[in-house]
C-alpha cells in the first residue's frame, strides 16, 4: 500500500519543519540576549535537512526528510557601546547575540509554508485513501 507511505514521508517533513520552527523561535527569543558571565553571547542556530530514503518492499524508495544536524552560526555578535551596563567589557562594549531578526523571520515564513504544504499533501492522501476504501460500494 504505497499510499500509506505518504504519511511517513510528509510526516517526516512536518516534524523536520516544526523542528526548524522551534530553532527559529529560540533564535528570535534570544535576539536581544547579552553575553552571560562566561562572556559568550547566544549564537544563532540553524537546522540542516537531509533526504532519508524510506524503503518499500517493491519499487522505488520514498524520499523523506530528516534534520541531520543543528549548527551554530559562528559570526561575531553585535557589539553596542554601553559602559554603564553591568555586562559591559573593559572597553565599555556589550556583546549581544548574533541573531539576525530579518533572517529569522524569512526562515519562519518559509518553514510555516512548507509545513502547510505537507499537511495538505497528507489531507489529500487521506481523502484518496478514504475513497479507495469505499471502492465498489457506490
Amino acid at each position: 500500500m504505497s499510499m500509506m507511505k505518504i504519511f511517513d514521508i510528509s510526516g517526516s517533513a512536518v516534524s523536520s519543519q516544526s523542528q526548524r520552527l522551534n530553532v527559529v523561535a529560540s533564535n528570535l527569543a534570544n535576539v536581544d540576549t547579552v553575553a552571560g558571565p562566561d562572556g559568550k553571547a547566544y549564537k544563532a542556530r540553524e537546522v540542516t535537512f537531509q533526504t532519508v530514503l524510506m524503503g518499500t518492499p517493491d519499487g522505488v524508495p520514498g524520499a523523506g526528510v530528516k534534520v541531520s544536524g543543528i549548527t551554530e552560526n559562528q559570526s561575531p555578535g553585535r557589539k553596542v557601546h554601553d559602559p554603564n551596563s553591568p555586562s559591559a567589557d573593559a572597553d565599555g562594549y556589550v556583546t549581544y547575540s548574533n541573531v539576525n531578526a530579518v533572517d529569522e523571520m524569512v526562515n519562519m515564513i518559509s518553514a510555516s509554508r512548507s509545513y502547510q504544504n505537507n499537511i495538505e499533501v497528507m489531507n489529500t492522501a487521506k481523502t484518496l485513501l478514504m475513497k479507495t476504501l469505499q471502492m465498489g460500494q457506490g
Partner: peptide, 18 residues
C-alpha cells in the same frame, strides 16, 4: 497513480533539502 502520488509527496517533503 498511488506510486506517483508518493513520489510527488517526497518532492514536496524535500522542498528545503539542499
Amino acid at each position: 497513480r498511488a506510486e506517483r502520488q508518493r513520489i510527488i509527496a517526497g518532492n514536496i517533503a524535500n522542498a528545503d533539502t539542499p
